[in-house]
Design a protein around this nucleic acid. Structure first.
Lengths: 132, 132
DNA sequence: CGGTATCCCGGTGGATACTG
DNA sequence: CAGTATCCACCGGGATACCG
């Protein structure tokens, strides 16, 4: 049936496309950098190690679930190191790895751009929204 | 009722937090840069203007809805300029504004970091996943 | 050609409660 | 203190159909 094969072809294109995305380094890193919490955590850790509870306070607004989940992902990607000290109660410290630290300047560049140009962006929005 | 006031207090904290986020320039820009399609579009436009249909082909995999929606947001933020030429059928061109062009080097820095370090990230993942 | 409008599914992430 | 488990509301975004 031609209908079926058309659908299949679309499905295949979809797979090829997804594969392309999965392989693209920039997209993968963007998934981390663009994440709502990842960049905040990396920034928070950029000047030394922090404990779970410290991060929870410092970030303020992050749920326990997302804090743990995001830290796990960063650890998995080799950007953050997790150190458990066995005592009662248990103590857990997080710090940037050498790899994680190389990301800090890039995030800082993004931060600089933001602070430099946010005024223009906001002005553009007002213009756009004001023009009905 | 104490229960009510506790809920209200939590609601207020939530608002304060959201306000903080809304005001933070970095978070706002991150919302653009981290967006799945925005950065791809800016990159696609970095070497000249493109038509709607060209972008649709070039990006490949983006739905019409998201293409239009993302372009509107970029236009609203003053990063992209939309030019309509009245003819039949209508012709629409998109190009980066001067502001949009200042974002290109930042995205390129991100791209460079990605291509340089993606190997280490992937290796870290294998180690992490392999260690049961 | 370049949209807009509508429906709807699946993933994201917050709230809550429990464990070592 | 740090983490896991469960439930579920929300909305991002794909598919589809129709306009100027």
């Amino acid at each position: 049936m031609t209908t079926q094969s058309a659908q299949q072809r679309r499905a295949e294109e979809r797979i090829v496309y997804d594969a392309f995305l999965a392989v693209c380094p920039t997209r993968q890193v963007l998934a981390t950098v663009g994440d709502k919490w990842s960049s905040l955590l990396i920034t928070a850790l950029s000047d030394g190690s922090r404990r779970h509870s410290q991060l929870r306070t410092q970030i303020g607004g992050i749920s326990q679930k997302m804090l743990t989940q995001t830290l796990r992902e960063l650890e998995r990607d080799g950007l953050v190191r997790r150190t458990v000290t066995l005592q009662v109660p248990v103590r857990v410290d997080y710090e940037l790895t050498a790899l994680g630290q190389t990301l800090v300047p890039v995030l800082r560049a993004l931060k600089d751009w933001s602070e430099t140009h946010i005024g223009e962006v906001l002005a553009a929005r007002e213009r756009y929204d004001g023009a009905t």
